[in-house]
């Protein structure tokens, strides 16, 4: 059965700002909401809630979060928005390691396309 996609439209630059202002706390909330959207689009649990929460405080879990988002989550979003499917896991892994907020901005940009 198709799940309702939760409303989670944000300006990507806002994630960068809020991430800095809250010293990373906002990214825990963002991880939870983004995983809910990805799971609803994929119609299965791609990223579980414990992984989403721990991704905000533990680097290996954070990398796993972006690997799952790039490998299984974003291709489903591209499928839904009619874009050419591509594997973003490598890019998100590297950005997730060096600049987690930039990786979050890229994922948010793709999520936003769902609400156009």
């Amino acid at each position: 059965m198709a799940q309702t996609i939760p409303q989670f439209k944000n300006e990507p630059v806002l994630i960068l700002l809020l991430g800095f202002i809250t010293c990373g706390l906002y990214l825990i909330y963002w991880n939870i909401k983004a995983s809910q959207v990805i799971n609803a689009v994929a119609e299965k649990e791609v990223i579980s809630q414990p992984i989403a929460i721990f991704a905000g405080c533990c680097l290996p879990v954070n990398l796993y979060f972006y690997y799952l988002a790039g490998k299984e989550g974003l291709p489903k979003i591209y499928e839904k928005t009619g874009e050419i499917g591509k594997d973003q896991s490598t890019l998100l892994l590297i950005l997730g390691f060096l600049f987690p907020m930039v990786a979050a901005m890229i994922v948010q940009g793709d999520i936003n396309k769902l609400y156009k």
């Binding site: 939870i32 414990p50 929460i53 721990f54 405080c57």
Partner: peptide
């Protein structure tokens, strides 16, 4: 994979941070 436990830990972590 308990959401309840994960949310509790997430909340505790947020307060701690």
């Amino acid at each position: 994979y308990s959401k309840k436990i994960a949310y509790c830990l997430g909340f505790t972590l947020a307060i701690y941070h």
